Simulated scan of single mutants.
Amino acid sequence: MIRVFDILFSLIGLVFLSPLLILIFLIGFFENTSPIFVQKRVGLNLKFFSLIKFRTMPIQVRSVGTHLLKNIQLSPFGNFLRITKIDEIPQLWNVLFGDMSLVGPRPCLFNQRKLINERKKRGVFKVRPGITGLAQISGINMKTPSLLAKTDQKMIKNMSLYKYFYYIIKTIFKIIQ
């Protein structure tokens, strides 16, 4: 049932937000000629997929988790995209194509070995990664791999249709704040 809602909501979101997506794409293109950022991530059953986002950093910045960078170099427009979370909207394509869900553990990079090992131990890769979830609304990020994996496991264990909507609504309120 959750997959049906993922497809429905991602389609509605992409259609409804298409004018904004086009505008962001054009602004990003004029800022750095490469407004879309595609990054290899670890998904369901440890399979790699290409995560789609709006580019927030200059093209020459290496592709690692931002928590591993000492000085995060955001472009001026990229800073706005990060603050408003608009950079995440293209992930609706990942949801539509089945690589992700709206709710699930955030997909990690292939080189985040400690997090991958922690998640393997807890069965986190048995579900689709998501745009939001318990860790995101709790402020837990990739800097604390063990805590993140435990939180992901807890979310998966208690997942229901009610929790699915709860995490989405809670995320929207966090963004608005």
Score class of each variant (00 low, 15 high):
residue 149 A to D: 03
residue 45 N to L: 09
residue 83 I to G: 05
residue 125 F to S: 00
residue 23 L to I: 14
residue 72 I to P: 13
residue 131 I to P: 00
residue 91 Q to C: 13
residue 81 L to H: 07
residue 73 Q to M: 10
residue 115 L to K: 15
residue 26 L to V: 12
residue 154 K to Q: 03
residue 3 R to D: 06
residue 147 L to K: 00
residue 70 K to F: 09
residue 19 P to T: 08
residue 120 K to P: 09
residue 60 Q to D: 14
residue 176 I to G: 06
residue 48 F to A: 12
residue 92 L to G: 00
residue 94 N to V: 03
residue 102 L to Q: 07
residue 24 I to S: 07
residue 71 N to T: 14
residue 165 F to S: 02
residue 92 L to A: 06
residue 86 I to E: 00
residue 100 M to A: 05
residue 162 Y to L: 13
residue 37 F to E: 05
residue 83 I to E: 15
residue 95 V to M: 05
residue 28 G to Q: 03
residue 152 D to Y: 04
residue 8 L to N: 13
residue 15 V to Y: 07
residue 27 I to M: 00
residue 138 S to M: 01
residue 80 F to P: 02
residue 111 N to K: 04
residue 35 P to D: 05
residue 135 A to G: 00
residue 166 Y to Q: 09
residue 109 L to Y: 09
residue 41 R to E: 00
residue 144 T to N: 09
residue 14 L to Q: 03
residue 72 I to A: 15
residue 11 L to C: 11
residue 77 F to N: 06
residue 96 L to T: 08
residue 13 G to V: 05
residue 138 S to A: 13
residue 17 L to A: 02
residue 149 A to M: 01
residue 46 L to G: 09
residue 69 L to I: 10
residue 84 T to S: 07
residue 151 T to L: 02
residue 137 I to N: 01
residue 54 F to S: 07
residue 171 T to H: 04
residue 57 M to G: 00
residue 10 S to T: 04
residue 34 S to K: 09
residue 109 L to I: 01
residue 85 K to V: 09
residue 34 S to D: 10
residue 114 K to L: 12
residue 58 P to T: 02
residue 59 I to Y: 10
residue 171 T to Y: 02
residue 101 S to P: 04
residue 88 E to M: 10
residue 98 G to C: 05
residue 114 K to V: 13
residue 79 N to V: 14
residue 152 D to N: 04
residue 83 I to M: 14
residue 131 I to H: 10
